[in-house]
Design a protein around this nucleic acid. Sequence first.
DNA 1: TTTTTATATTGCAATATTACGATAAACATT
DNA 2: AATGTTTATCGTAATATTGCAATATAAAAA
Lengths: 109, 109
Amino acid sequence: MGATKTDHFTETQNELSMLAKALGHPARIAIIEHLLKVNACICGDIVNELPLSQPTVSQHLKELKSAGLIKGSIEGNSICYCINESGFEKIKSFSEQVSAHLEKKNSCC
Amino acid sequence: MGATKTDHFTETQNELSMLAKALGHPARIAIIEHLLKVNACICGDIVNELPLSQPTVSQHLKELKSAGLIKGSIEGNSICYCINESGFEKIKSFSEQVSAHLEKKNSCC
DNA sequence: TTTTTATATTGCAATATTACGATAAACATT
DNA sequence: AATGTTTATCGTAATATTGCAATATAAAAA
């Protein structure tokens, strides 16, 4: 075992969990926060900002990108990363949906 | 390696990533969705609802609980689980914060 | 063209997660 | 007390993640 049984769940469940999983590491939260703060976003800046090696940061960026949470575009020699809104929209809408449900029904425990 | 360097990141970054990580599995998304739908929430029902064994479901419930996303209270023989609002509030506020930032600054790539 | 700069990939070791059978624990029912 | 029901824990195998040194790639600068 050790492999998630993704085929037993719905598309939406798998998609949401993949987005959440991509945010499930403090370095990747830090990257998102940094991208929000500066709004200009050369990869090397992120490497300098984080207490991790360049290959490790590159890997985290790759995960955020493949999850659809950031975008990257080539800018001469370097690469410009920034937030991909659509991924965050899905997370936002899920969390708002949870809140909306909770307002109507009160929790039972 | 393999161990996350949590001590190199802020409290908030670690907390947010732990919440996200707890949602980073389709079974745990499915559990949350089920709890929202029924609002009554005996553990055994969740086990029946999911395509996973009882020990595996129990483990997922434990993770959601320790992350602060659900609460559980003993109800006679069985255990009643339900959503823990405070955990979801943090996720909601983060995703709304991201959206708010994005409205002001337009993405650069 | 050679060298430098910036980022990605490979390979690998350490650790974490996922899943479940077996079993324990705790309470309810008989 | 004995039995059944419900949930948790243990042990363990399979797989995934994290992190980095070494190396590759690609564009810029010299």
